[in-house]
């Protein structure tokens, strides 16, 4: 079941720059979905539209069936988020910051807040001014605020940006724990491929505001979901594969099969359409291989 449905989002900035072009995808209950793309691909814009921070020129986002455009408060009541860099009030303590933010959700429960601070490892520093916090501590506080009051879904916008390797690992483990313990649904916006590969079930790849791929993280695919096709009829092959819902990247030569499409049927179709198939081998690509192929296409 889809918790968030992103429907045909289009965003054009005032200067005329196209940020998103008819992007649709869904975030299913209980999954971790990675939103991948280069800088400027439209990842943060997508997240901004989901959170009602940015208005779309066309399309809408439904959270639990509530439109962000027309019913924002209801839609966001089940979402916790870290959107772009978390800038806390430096002159307030971590505890006071949480109090200010939670008041906007109309919620405050001291024992629950203490529990969350313990979960993110900040219970000892909660009453210190946030200006004394390290970057990693700020990120953990950002996660704590996103978890209060306990949301069904967490949107994380490049949450490990600027963290050291230990910090990244800690953060990753914490997020995975949230899914395991609380069954949380998570949308992770990142350009760190290893992070997405290790954490996500599915991913969406954006390039220049267009969706290039939505599906299982390639490295987690079964060996027989991805094939390498060597052919000289590249454009014809691409046309045939895309006509049945699959994707073909002419640079990496990788073919991702559409759901419930046996490989032999697609191969037969290619041959029927007179595509010269030089080689057709099962392949298990890394996410990096897949991503670079997709974005170079």
């Amino acid at each position: 079941m889809a918790l968030i449905e992103v429907c045909n989002l289009t965003k054009v900035w005032r200067a005329g720059k196209l940020a998103l072009d008819n992007v649709s995808f869904e975030l299913r209950q209980g999954e971790i979905l990675g939103l991948l793309g280069h800088n400027g691909a439209g990842k943060s814009t997508t997240l901004g539209i989901i959170l009602g921070m940015i208005s779309a020129n066309a399309g809408d986002v439904l959270v639990n069936g509530h439109s962000v455009k027309t019913d924002r408060a209801q839609a966001l009541s089940s979402i916790g988020a870290i959107y772009e860099a978390a800038h806390f009030y430096d002159y307030l303590t971590g505890w006071q910051n949480l109090r200010v933010l939670c008041s906007l959700s109309g919620w405050w429960n001291e024992s629950e807040v203490k529990k969350m601070l313990k979960l993110v490892g900040l219970e000892q520093r909660a009453h210190h001014l946030t200006k004394t916090y390290s970057h990693g501590m700020r990120q953990r506080l950002a996660l704590a605020q996103a978890l209060l009051p306990r949301p069904k879904c967490l949107l994380l916008d490049e949450p490990t940006d600027g963290l050291d390797p230990e910090g990244i690992r800690e953060f990753r483990e914490l997020v995975l724990r949230l899914r395991a313990e609380f069954g949380m649904t998570i949308l992770l916006n990142s350009h760190l491929l290893s992070e997405v590969e290790q954490m996500c079930d599915r991913c969406v790849i954006l390039k220049l505001g267009r969706k290039m791929y939505e599906g299982v993280v390639p490295s987690q695919k079964k060996k027989h979901d991805v094939f390498q096709l060597l052919t000289r009829d590249v454009s014809k092959a691409r046309e045939v594969i895309e006509s049945v819902g699959g994707t073909f990247d002419p640079v990496s030569h990788l073919v991702v099969l559409p759901p419930q499409q046996p490989a032999y049927e697609l191969l037969r179709l290619l041959i029927e359409k007179t595509v010269r198939v030089d080689s057709w081998t099962a392949h298990k690509p890394t996410l990096e291989e897949f991503y670079l192929g997709m974005t170079a296409a």
């Binding site: 959107y83 906007l104 949107l155």
Partner: peptide, 17 residues
């Protein structure tokens, strides 16, 4: 200071804020 990125991801309307 970028505080709206924390405030407005909450279910509160801009007019109310």
């Amino acid at each position: 200071d970028g505080h709206y990125r924390l405030l407005l991801v909450r279910p509160v309307s801009r007019v109310r804020l």
